[in-house]
């Protein structure tokens, strides 16, 4: 998925690591194409600057970081209509995930709906189709979210 996005126009991968996304991030780190930031909103700021230079960006984070980013999404990304792809790891998807993830995992679908971000879930079967969808959306100046479910508990 990393290579596919890179080959199809995403120049920058900026964000905060999440174990659900570790394979994606590992591939990017090997290619020296990942920029790790201290917080998720910082990543959104950097990606915004890059997008203003006509360089397409993906911002990755855990859903805990998505909750951290709500104000930045409304008052920067949506206010200025900055087209970026968010890649969010869905912790708390399983009922038996660690306790700190349960609440955010449960309210995540409603949060995405309320903040008015179009989103698709990425799986083994759907990743390519949904990456294509996301790439076409940012070409048309929209911001979208791709989600990877956490389906195992370690």
């Amino acid at each position: 998925m990393f290579s596919y996005l890179e080959k199809n126009g995403i120049d920058n991968f900026v964000g905060v690591p999440d174990s659900t996304l570790k394979n994606f991030i590992k591939e990017g780190l090997l290619k020296k194409k990942i920029l790790i930031t201290t917080r998720e909103d910082e990543a959104i700021g950097i990606a915004t600057g890059m997008t203003l230079c006509k360089s397409n960006s993906l911002i990755f984070m855990q859903n805990a970081g998505f909750a951290n980013s709500l104000s930045t999404i409304t008052s920067l990304i949506q206010l200025y209509k900055i087209p970026v792809i968010f890649l969010i790891g869905w912790r708390g998807f399983l009922q038996n995930d660690a306790p700190e993830h349960i609440k955010i995992g449960r309210i995540q679908p409603n949060l995405l709906k309320d903040i008015e971000l179009e989103n698709r879930i990425v799986s083994e079967k759907t990743w390519k189709k949904n990456c294509k969808w996301a790439l076409s959306k940012i070409k048309n100046n929209s911001t979208v979210v791709l989600i990877i479910k956490r389906e195992t508990v370690e």
Binding site: T37, D41, E42, A43, I44, G45, I46, A47, T48, G49, M50, T51, L52, C53, T72, L76
Partner: peptide, 10 residues
């Protein structure tokens, strides 16, 4: 808070 981050991206 994010002016320096946007500036960094540019």
């Amino acid at each position: 808070g994010l002016a320096s981050s946007i500036g960094l991206g540019v």
